[in-house]
Computed example of a mutant assay.
Amino acid sequence: MILKAPSARHMALFILILLPSMTGYMAWEGRAVEVTVLTIDGAPEGVVYITDPHVRASNIDHVQEVIREVNRLNPSLVLIGGDFVTGEEEDFASQEVWRSLDAPAYAVLGNHDYRVGIDGRTGFERTLAVQTSTDVTAAGYDVSALNDGSVDAAFADDLTAALEENGVHVLRNDYVRIPVGDEEIVIVGVDDGWAGMADPPDVPATDTFTVYLIHEPSCRADWDADLILAGHTHGGQFLFPVVAQLNDFGVVELAGTFETNGTPTYISRGVCSASVAGVDLRFNCRPEIVLINPTEEQLRVIGGSPTPLLETGTV
């Protein structure tokens, strides 16, 4: 029997049949939130981290569902890693969604919150500029060269005011020391790097567990921290096998745990995505809620929840 290669017509027909089902799957995955558990020695129990909500009309129901799931976990504290908006807003009425959070919330801003690097070309330019025009060492940290004429600081100020009104405390190059259960935690919020606004505060030496919140992982430094939390990448959003392997080997840093001079950095896949024709699409890269040192009660909630649990082990 002689097997003929498929004709161009047959291939085109196959693609036309496959494409809608693939798009449907990627749209489903874009809303299929996982809970990622991190076990970190010395960290307080029950802390939740989310990032990149990009709240807009087309995804506000999804953000509300994420908040409901966070509330079901009854966290001691919620940390949010920036990119609250798309950068195209005329007002911030949608940020009222955060009023429904049942736990104290602390956050930093992201590049969309300053309206910088929000398309492919300018994003690539910012990525390159971090490598060529900045100093991201703890001793000489300086990203001010990125604060150019495109940075909309007034937009970020207005967004910050709206977030504060709705219960989210925004740390802009500041830190707080707060109780979490029977323990304490120091949260250091570094303002957005791509906007050139990052100017890490001087933090007194302490034995208290210290978390640095930063939006872009490439703008982190070798700070005296116990944990660095970042977002921005959406985990790659379309994590095809080759890209996933590059991430696993640390060639690129898109999602998961990496080390910065012995300090673990966790890069979250975020809870929402850049949309295609108004639809959040993902592949092999589901949105996530990060849960640090879960309590027994939280583990029971996860066990009975429709939200899948992804265990990542000890950091």
Rank of each mutant, 00 (worst) to 15 (best):
P287C: 00
D191L: 01
E296R: 14
G117I: 06
S305P: 13
V48P: 12
E34C: 08
G81R: 03
G231C: 05
T206M: 11
A244F: 04
T36M: 08
S144A: 13
C272M: 11
A138Q: 06
A255P: 00
F249K: 12
V176E: 10
Y106A: 02
A139I: 13
G120P: 03
L73C: 11
K4P: 01
E165T: 15
V108D: 04
G30W: 08
P20M: 05
A162Q: 12
Y141D: 11
R68D: 13
N284K: 04
G117H: 04
L291D: 06
G82Y: 07
L13G: 08
E253H: 10
E311Y: 11
A103E: 00
Y25S: 12
T23W: 14
G42K: 03
D224A: 15
W194P: 00
I17W: 13
A8I: 11
A198Q: 02
V176A: 08
A5T: 14
E164D: 15
P217V: 04
P200F: 00
T260Y: 10
I228W: 00
Y25K: 13
R220F: 10
D152K: 10
S305K: 09
P6N: 08
E89Q: 09
I267K: 03
G82M: 03
E164I: 10
V271Q: 05
M197P: 01
G193D: 07
D41Y: 02
L299H: 10
Y114V: 03
R56W: 01
E90F: 02
V48Y: 00
D52Q: 04
V47H: 05
Q64W: 00
Q237H: 13
R56P: 08
V78W: 02
T206I: 08
N293Q: 11
H54F: 03
I302R: 13
V151L: 05
P217I: 02
N261I: 04
V190E: 02
N173M: 07
D202K: 06
H10F: 09
A154H: 14
A43V: 11
G149F: 02
Q245P: 01
F124C: 01
I292T: 06
S76F: 06
